[in-house]
Design a protein around this nucleic acid. Structure first.
Lengths: 346, 346
DNA sequence: ATGAAAGCGCTAACAA
DNA sequence: TTGTTAGCGCTTTCAT
């Protein structure tokens, strides 16, 4: 296979200069005579020369590339984080290799293939504590966690302010007059589930309500687990007038289960979700939810990573991004319903 | 910054062999004495040596990495394609750099940064004809198109059998007794929109129905464009008892618009979508749709790309993947409804 | 079975 | 301002 693109030396020969001068031109060095520069640029154009990135990496020892490891690439939140990170990376002339690591083993071999081989200078880890994957983290490699604060690891992180968001969600329901509020949590090994649960508890405590632990169900983020949660609540005879689902998919599953047993949303039960996923406003009823901006989170993570790559004296940080309540139609004031039902009008 | 990982020569020195022997060991060459091999492996373990991928690329001239360029990373279909491609790539020890190119210019500069710089050996292009991006395609670089057949370009492609899927969707509606079937198409610059439309037309022709062109609306894949489509149909006084939306988001938007004007789905109007996006079964009513398997499509594309990378004599091919009808609750037989309405029971 | 030499295409350090 | 010399860490080719 013939080499299709010229080398720096061929350009140099054609322009009648040394290859080093060509290097200076393509790197925009100041110390080069304008005339020489022109000659070189002409030769570059004539030869259709483009610098070889791999040779550059080889020469200066780093790749301007980082790896982004995610449990999967299809979850909307993950995909948005990745999109945000990738764009910020590219804006700063970095590259990103994205890979899905369904489990800890896959994660480990990815770290080997990408980081230990020095194909990659740095690491972005989405949900480092979903499983044991954090035990495979490389040492001494700039890393940013997404979705969980470091537990001792000396890495940066950007996370949603999940506790505050959980608190806001619960207070929204409280403000609507609800007192019996069930929670459908994500997997409790994930920090964000715990944090959202804490926020919820704090809100209830502040409202003088002692939370009943049985009013919480541990789901797995899937719609069907939301469905199961409601069935479980019913089976165990729980009473509740509102549900806080820790993501929209579980909220949607819960609403379906509720409807199957003849409960109307929001008239009988209010449901608040989390994420504001695409089409959240197109469900029936349109979902009230805590919106997060995963694109922004990804961008911020890339920014942080590049900072610590370029300024090794930069201090560790954890940045928290706030969530925002989007009040649509799946939650409603308890009193309003009660009055309507008894025929009272304002 | 000190080099943290040993080089092949350091390993060689420690094992008392030449660096070439170490190279043979790490590359699994047969021609190496078992004892020597052991010594080398010991040295590798002691030093924590890992081969430098960049140096390897440099030495043999290719990177085992390809670029995957997509209009965005968040669309579920794209994300699934990417996930499928990335996993297949990794399974075969390749890497993939994924980037979003919102427009043709971004696409062009990405091709420059990734392909002309030889950071990448090959190219996966999702939706090459969304805009003018195909004019920036590199020559002489193994490429696979996703979502559109090559228009003259000498590249492989994997596409859904959109025409057949369009035909199947229309025939489903036809079989249910519908005769006035409106279409909400995707952007007509995209081949898949055209192909789905063709399939629909063929089906109607076969059923002896001359399609009225005004019964087609060009959307942009968004739910709100599906909503607009229905309003447009109504405003222009179109009659229809069924709608074929070329993706699920537009279907959902259409259903909402229908409901707003007091039309029930499926009792008054049947709606079939396309994709079987996540939660399609959780909408009200659960969506009838043409399911595609984008993960499989991505995997197939990566397979093809690697084939043509490793066997340059491999012949060009376009592989078509079938879609599958998922009949849920948003479509119903016209007669059934009519009978119910007039009080007739079976 | 093993080693020595050359080179991949560039950048960095120094010299002129 | 420009050129020369050395690598970067590996693979490949050719000798031994």
């Amino acid at each position: 296979m013939p080499r299709l693109i010229a080398t720096i030396r061929e350009v140099a020969a054609r322009a009648g200069v040394s290859h080093q001068t060509v290097s200076r031109v393509i790197n925009g060095s100041e110390r080069v005579n304008p005339e020489t520069k022109q000659k070189v640029e002409l030769a570059i154009a004539e030869l259709g020369y483009a610098p070889n990135a791999i040779a550059r990496f080889m020469a200066h020892g780093h790749t301007r590339t980082f790896a982004c490891l995610s449990p999967n690439l299809t979850d909307y939140t993950f995909a948005s984080i990745i999109d945000g990170a990738e764009r910020e990376a590219r804006r700063q002339k970095y590259f990103m290799i994205t890979a899905s690591a369904p489990d800890a083993d896959a994660f480990g071999s990815l770290v080997e293939q990408l980081v230990y081989s020095r194909q990659t200078d740095a690491l972005l880890v989405i949900n480092p504590y979903v499983d044991e994957r954090y035990t495979h983290l490389p040492k001494n490699v700039p890393t940013v966690f997404l979705g969980a604060k470091p537990r001792g690891e000396l890495v940066d992180a950007v996370v949603l302010d999940d506790e505050l968001a959980g608190l806001d969600a619960a207070e929204h329901l409280l403000a609507l007059g609800h007192r019996k509020i069930a929670v459908i949590a994500g997997p409790l090994v994930e920090d964000c589930s715990q944090a959202r649960l804490n926020g919820y508890r704090v809100a209830l405590c502040k409202a003088g309500i002692c939370e009943e632990p049985t009013l919480a169900y541990e789901g797995d983020w899937s719609a069907s687990s939301g469905h199961r949660a409601v069935n479980e609540f019913i089976k165990t005879g729980q009473e509740f007038s509102a549900i806080f689902a820790q993501n929209d998919r579980m909220a949607v599953g819960a609403i379906q289960a509720l409807r199957e047993i003849g409960q109307r949303v929001p008239e009988d039960v209010s449901v608040i979700g989390f994420d504001d996923m695409p089409l959240a406003s197109y469900f029936d009823p349109p979902l009230t939810t805590m919106r997060q901006d995963p694109f922004l989170i990804g961008r911020e993570a890339a920014r942080l990573l590049i900072c610590s790559l370029e300024d090794s004296s930069s201090t560790r940080q954890v940045v928290q991004i706030p969530a925002e309540l989007i009040w649509r139609k799946s939650t409603i004031a308890k009193e309003v319903v009660a009055r309507r039902m008894t025929g009272l009008v304002y």
